[in-house]
Design a protein around this nucleic acid. Structure first.
Ligand SMILES: NC(=O)c1ccc[n+]([C@@H]2O[C@H](COP(=O)([O-])OP(=O)(O)OC[C@H]3O[C@@H](n4cnc5c(N)ncnc54)[C@H](O)[C@@H]3O)[C@@H](O)[C@H]2O)c1
Ligand SMILES: NC(=O)c1ccc[n+]([C@@H]2O[C@H](COP(=O)([O-])OP(=O)(O)OC[C@H]3O[C@@H](n4cnc5c(N)ncnc54)[C@H](O)[C@@H]3O)[C@@H](O)[C@H]2O)c1
Lengths: 208, 208
DNA sequence: AATTTAATGTTACAAAGTTCACAATAAATT
DNA sequence: AATTTATTGTGAACTTTGTAACATTAAATT
């Protein structure tokens, strides 16, 4: 139905709209929002149109209404529960991050195999990996952030899928092989950086 | 010339090829590599063809040769110097990461405004932000990883650009406004997660 | 040496996504 | 009330990306 590209833009709009709302603005034009999010005004209108969002001829779009509709699309009325698997450097950074709750995402538990990492006392408890299936099933958790070393990512992903996880956001630079009903997103920081360097430094070399 | 999408696939091929090389394989077929990287064999061949990489009609592609050519495309003969700006949770995770050097990327310095973060003694020194322009110019640094709070991201980006930075990999969830000759890549972890949840949990709700 | 086979490489086709152009229209102005 | 204006909404054109089909060719087999 709605593809990832559209979704991403819609989330960007939401970010900007929230800021505008905080600043006291009530309406926005496709032109403003486009400028703010780096999207053409036509694209903004088309996206809204596709999602059934209506504006007023000459008056633009109502920000509250927009935010309400977008939140509705993302079911932001209910808290989305997520776990973190692998509490190393990156996993810990994610655990510390305060920005998830604002977006109705709650990290409810973390897992590791290193006993030195287990901490039940803190806000987000860190459990041994073996407890993952039980906890995921008890709390109906369907989404996980995977921050384990590359070498074990596939194996840990398999365990999570067996435990009922349906979506995995992985930071390990490997293509995870999973059944078709499982959704994987991989953030490969090194590739992003390499690709950036290619585009910014190397392509410019000649002309710059 | 070559767009981001192609570049990303090429980097994925490289990862897989390296693993194959380590396992002692000498040749690979478009079919194998496609399976490994989640790309169709036709696409693999097309990509290689576009980058001027030739295979053998029945013998597939030579892995060493492939890696050599891909490395050449990415100028992997020279170390790419990068800085990290903002050494909080995420910035520190990036600083600790050992996987960059393998890909010919070296983080040479980091910057923060919090004096508690300054550490000149460690492998990668952390300097006050004011030193950024001088150090970037002395070391000819063109690429930065930006891990400062959202609220100051634009302002810090401006400083970096003035200091000669051409490419920024930002983790702050804002659209940075920069001149056209500057390349920005934004990794928005929250959006990736939200979009994953939308695709995996919510879309499946009805049928699952 | 001729034939079959298993791969590459390319061309044509299809789908998706974006931009463009402009019609529609509500608000503002005269 | 008529006209102008500023903005939305959308159909068509264009562009990009991916898929499928197939022609090509080097190796293997007969
Ligand atoms: N840190 C970065 O900046 C960075 C950059 C690019 C990619 N990555 C990728 O992100 C992932 C995590 O990176 P990191 O720097 O946090 O690594 P890390 O080594 O700091 O952390 C890995 C954690 O996973 C745990 N672990 C190991 N095996 C496990 C298992 N079987 N089950 C559960 N937990 C297990 C370890 O105990 C450790 O706590 C890696 O795949 C890495 O390649 C990280
Ligand atoms: N940690 C995560 O998992 C996560 C997830 C999503 C997005 N992000 C984004 O990544 C960025 C960094 O996140 P974090 O969790 O590491 O934050 P953090 O607060 O832990 O770190 C921010 C660092 O930036 C420094 N800083 C502040 N102002 C500065 C300035 N003007 N110049 C230089 N340094 C400055 C601070 O001293 C601090 O060390 C933020 O924009 C955040 O929104 C982080």
């Amino acid at each position: 139905m709605f593809v990832s590209r559209n979704i991403t833009r819609l989330l960007r709009y939401r970010n900007s709209l929230k800021r505008m709302q905080e600043l006291g603005f009530e309406t926005v034009y496709s032109y403003n929002l486009g400028k703010e999010t780096g999207v053409s005004p036509e694209q903004v209108r088309k996206d809204f149109s596709q999602f059934g969002i209506k504006g007023k001829k000459k008056g633009g779009y109502n920000i509250n209404e927009l935010l309400f509709t977008i939140s509705d699309i993302f079911r932001k009325d209910e808290l989305q529960k997520v776990i973190v698997v692998g509490t190393g450097n990156l996993g810990n950074a994610v655990l510390q991050y305060k920005g998830f709750l604002k977006n109705m995402i709650q990290i409810v538990a973390a897992f590791d195999i290193d006993p030195a990492k287990y901490k039940k006392k803190q806000t987000i408890p860190v459990y041994p990996l073996e407890k993952l299936p039980k906890i995921c099933q008890e709390l109906y958790i369907k989404t996980a952030i995977l921050t384990v070393p590359e070498s074990v990512a596939q194996e840990v992903a398999n365990i999570m899928i067996k435990a009922g996880i349906k979506g995995i956001l992985s930071f390990a630079p490997v293509v995870l092989k999973v059944p078709p009903h499982i959704t994987i997103k991989t953030i490969c920081i090194v590739h992003e950086l390499e690709s950036l360097i290619y585009q910014s430094v190397q392509v410019c070399d000649g002309s710059d």
